[in-house]
Design a binder for these strands. Structure first.
Lengths: 239, 239, 239, 239
DNA sequence: CATGAATGAGCCTTCATTCAT
DNA sequence: GATGAATGAAGGCTCATTCAT
């Protein structure tokens, strides 16, 4: 009889948490398929029978671990409301958080992708995770477009998928495949590429070019305009 | 007692090829860990025992399949020498090929990543694969920089890693996770983002400011055009 | 540390009874081997641990359930002392009770047989159960033989085993295997067969040859009547 | 991959047969639920992995064993066509065969009943087994009724179920529960009871009573007639 | 007395690998 | 070379039983 947290006394709660933690470590270290239920139990210091008091299978444990990780990533990646008004700085701040969220969980998210490829029931969690980041990126871009600071002809969602993917993928290459870079440079470069890619324009007040477009025609016109990234913070950027 | 093709008579050669092909299909359909040696044998129409005449293990078969796939991707992604002189068009052509190479092998490359995460000996193949694309992208960028067409402050390799990752990742999201997009739009958007991100400047002779598009067709056509980033300031972005 | 009822306070007595009842239901529904101690506990509304306060094992619980059932069968199958003097009517009354006793407990007695096949210690209970019915049947037959109403050459015990078995077995086939029959017809037929088989003779005073029935009702009524086997020769069938 | 006999070479055929035989013995000795796959393998002298080459589970093995046993019982219980013309002698012959068929397989048939109680898919086999015997008995009775040798008012099927059950049940009590009797006496008594129960009349030619009834009315009348079993062979009957 | 968490023996099943034919 | 039968290590899971609270 598998038990959820709500039902448990403090002893059970502790055991369950120990299994989740042990599972998380084991998955990170060995990969999904290589993890044996007994590995997890040994790590958690319980007998393998106990495992089945709390989870019906390794898969179920992974579901819990994955949900935990996804939750953490949501939390960790929220740009505080007091973010700087400077759009570039906001992009940079977001990229830093994004990269760090991935730094903490890259392996597990890859695992989630792997499991989702086979097991339909994990697909949902994965899509949920991606959706949050995509939506956040798309909304940020839309806001900039509305403020006339970004190319209005870009499809916000598609752009967010692509540029978000750039950050996500770099995190993987950087952390898991050993591509050499320091965090500062990485964030700066990612942010520069991102900002330029969306045609980020400096704030209107300092805009050396025509006033922000408001009509579709104007928007279209602006798409082909020069991007002034003069005031972008690129401290630390460099190879 | 693994046998390479060179040693074999035509019968053996055929059997071996059947196993590789069957393995490739099986891996694509079921994922690395779910593939059983028996699945492969059944698909290839040979008995269990025969498998071990040619391969020492499932892993060895996968190594062969992966090498084949990597080879195909190299071949498939080479931008013909008769590529258009227009830098943007070249970027677009490369992205199209890149995306298609992934369309054909996305699942298997993810699998390679998965196996590489655990098995050191696959790491090399994966890095090799990535390196080819990274180098190609970095060299392209360096050429543009040398021609004064791209921001010279960008680190070519790092930029190639990031922007290449963008394409690669998008291919995965698009094909494996069902993100909706048509190939044309995808390639156009990726290319626009890429071109702008590196600060691509049009060849001096080209019209830097086409009149604003009015019709959808024009808009679409224009979307895939060169971005005029002539006046972009990149001071502070060091190489 | 098994506790019998005598030792217990009223709370314990209630818990124990709940377990026995729950066990009985569980055994009936799922069969001996499929019953888990947990099933019983859940059904009785007590925790695992509590079970072992009262019973040392599932087997011990079954022993108690079986004893209860056997006791009930004894009670239920006693033909009242005010039974009609008519021997056929007594046979019929006995068969009705017998059949009903089985209707109530067929599944559990089969289970007892099953357990007894493996576990020597249950053999006794089963034999006891059978013995009561056999003895009762044998004594009935002996009385009829003494009264000159039944074939004196039949071995009372062997005959009782066989004809009792006929009823017992029919109950099983009827209830457990879905052989179609209504109780009335079943009892009438069993009784007719039984009566004829032992060569039952009607009491001298009774009409040995009622006029042939014409209506269905009469036919039905007559079907359950005594068979006149007065002149049957049984030479050669020794006792 | 489970293998049926048809597909196998002689080696496989031998192994499979050994498993079936070993399973049969194991089931007989220990009972269904107590049999472990490994017991069977050890007895058959193969590794437990081999078991799964031929059967998917213990249940599947039992299905095969049960089918084999049922087949044997069919074969073993056929009364040869050259059976004596004397109805009683035929009854006796049939009972002897019936009893012996059960003597050989009593335990396994009880097991089949047990499994069928839980597993719907075994129900069919059990009912098939019973049906063959019931039908055979019912047809025998119907023939006697048509010949005016047995009570025509008896429902042939119901009677066959009951009297067949008597034999079947006795076999169990005798063999499995240790009721003491020698085969001769048992068969003689069963046959006498059976013959009398159906109102078996001697051949018409020697019938001391009215000519056989042909109309319903006559049939009904005859039901209450005396059974002359004078000429019945009861050799060996006696305690 | 009751609870429910923990235990671990025991059984089931899969599948990579070997090997005689 | 090919075959397919046999092997047994490796893991999964269940459930009766114990025990501290």
């Amino acid at each position: 009889m598998i038990v959820k947290s709500e039902t448990l006394g403090s002893r059970g709660r502790r055991t369950r948490a120990a299994l989740v933690q042990a599972g998380r470590e084991a998955f990170e270290e060995r990969g999904y398929d290589a993890v044996r239920v007994d590995d997890v139990c040994a790590r958690a210091g319980v007998s393998h029978g106990t495992f089945y008091t709390y989870f019906g299978s390794r898969e179920e444990l992974f579901r819990e671990v994955a949900a935990t990780v996804v939750g953490e990533m949501f939390t960790a990646s929220v740009v505080g409301p007091a973010a700087p008004g400077d759009p570039y700085a906001r992009i940079e701040a977001a990229n830093l958080l994004y990269l760090r969220a991935w730094a903490a969980n890259s392996r597990l998210v890859r695992m989630l992708e792997q499991v989702a490829a086979t097991d339909e029931s994990f697909r949902g969690l994965l899509l949920e995770l991606r959706e949050v980041f995509v939506r956040r990126g798309a909304e940020g871009l839309r806001r900039l477009q509305e403020q006339g600071l970004a190319d209005p002809s870009l499809d916000p969602r598609l752009t967010a998928v692509m540029l978000g993917g750039m950050v996500e993928h770099f995190a993987h290459v950087w952390l898991d495949l050993g591509e050499h870079a320091d965090e500062r440079t990485a964030v700066a470069t990612l942010s520069t590429l991102w900002a330029r890619a969306i045609g980020l324009t400096p704030a209107p007040s300092r805009d050396p070019l025509p006033a922000p477009a408001r009509t579709p025609e104007q928007a279209q016109a602006q798409k082909n305009r020069i991007v002034d990234v003069t005031s972008v913070s690129t401290k630390g950027a460099g190879a």
